[in-house]
Amino acid sequence: MPITGTHIAYLHTCHRKLWLFANGIQMEHTSEIVAEGKLIAETTYLDRARKYTELAIEGIKIDFYDAKNKVVHEVKKSDKVEQAHLAQVKYYLAVLSRNGIEAPSAIIEYPKLKQREVLDWDESYVAETAEWEKETHRIIDSETCPALLQKGICKSCSYYELCYITEI
């Protein structure tokens, strides 16, 4: 199974969510928060589709790629899971690099916060993301779903009801 940016983001957010997602239990379509994030990405930068291309390579899909300047543009709703956002974009850069695109960079944009974060290429991303790929495969290939770890972010997760359902 090819590893996607979503897998890497979930690796850094919740191993249970990663396992469920990778094993065909996908709840994003039921989440108002996910829908709001997609709406922000689609309506904030209206000229992006004309200026930049969508790029699909090795299982990842980059919505806005500036091929001329080798820049990935990633739009996020909020910075609540910033580590996961950084990891996802580092993974994109590593995939681009191993496919012959030299010194790619990225901009993570948070339009609601009017903030952005720039990531320049760093050779250390190669080894770092290779470890993430191994860990991701270890989790998703496991026979059992990881245990529930109660975190503050759980209440806004699309898997919340699934994880916290109780049977009588």
Rank of each mutant, 00 (worst) to 15 (best):
H73I: 05
E74P: 13
E74T: 07
E74M: 11
V75A: 10
V75M: 08
K76I: 03
K77Y: 02
K77P: 07
S78C: 01
S78Y: 09
S78I: 08
D79Q: 04
D79K: 02
D79E: 06
K80I: 13
V81M: 04
V81L: 11
V81H: 11
E82D: 09
E82F: 00
E82W: 03
E82M: 02
Q83I: 01
Q83W: 00
A84C: 08
H85D: 11
H85M: 00
L86F: 04
L86A: 09
L86R: 04
A87Q: 05
A87V: 10
A87Y: 00
A87I: 06
V89I: 05
Y91W: 01
Y92H: 07
V95M: 07
V95F: 05
S97A: 15
R98E: 15
R98N: 12
R98Y: 03
N99G: 09
N99I: 03
N99V: 02
G100E: 09
I101W: 01
E102M: 06
P104E: 06
P104V: 03
P104R: 08
P104N: 02
P104G: 07
P104I: 02
S105P: 06
S105V: 06
A106L: 00
I108R: 01
I108V: 15
I108M: 00
Y110K: 02
Y110C: 11
Y110P: 14
P111F: 02
K112R: 06
K112T: 06
L113P: 03
L113T: 07
L113M: 14
K114C: 15
Q115M: 14
R116V: 07
E117H: 10
E117R: 02
V118F: 00
L119G: 08
L119K: 03
D120I: 03
D120T: 06
W121Y: 11
W121E: 08
D122L: 12
D122A: 12
D122R: 11
D122N: 15
E123R: 03
S124H: 04
S124F: 02
V126Q: 15
T129V: 13
T129G: 14
T129E: 15
A130I: 11
E131R: 10
W132Y: 12
W132K: 07
W132T: 09
W132H: 12
W132M: 11
E133A: 09
E133G: 13
K134D: 12
T136M: 11
T136Q: 11
T136E: 14
H137Y: 05
H137Q: 15
H137F: 08
H137W: 11
I139E: 09
I139M: 10
I140Y: 01
I140D: 14
I140C: 04
D141N: 14
S142A: 14
E143K: 13
T144A: 04
T144I: 06
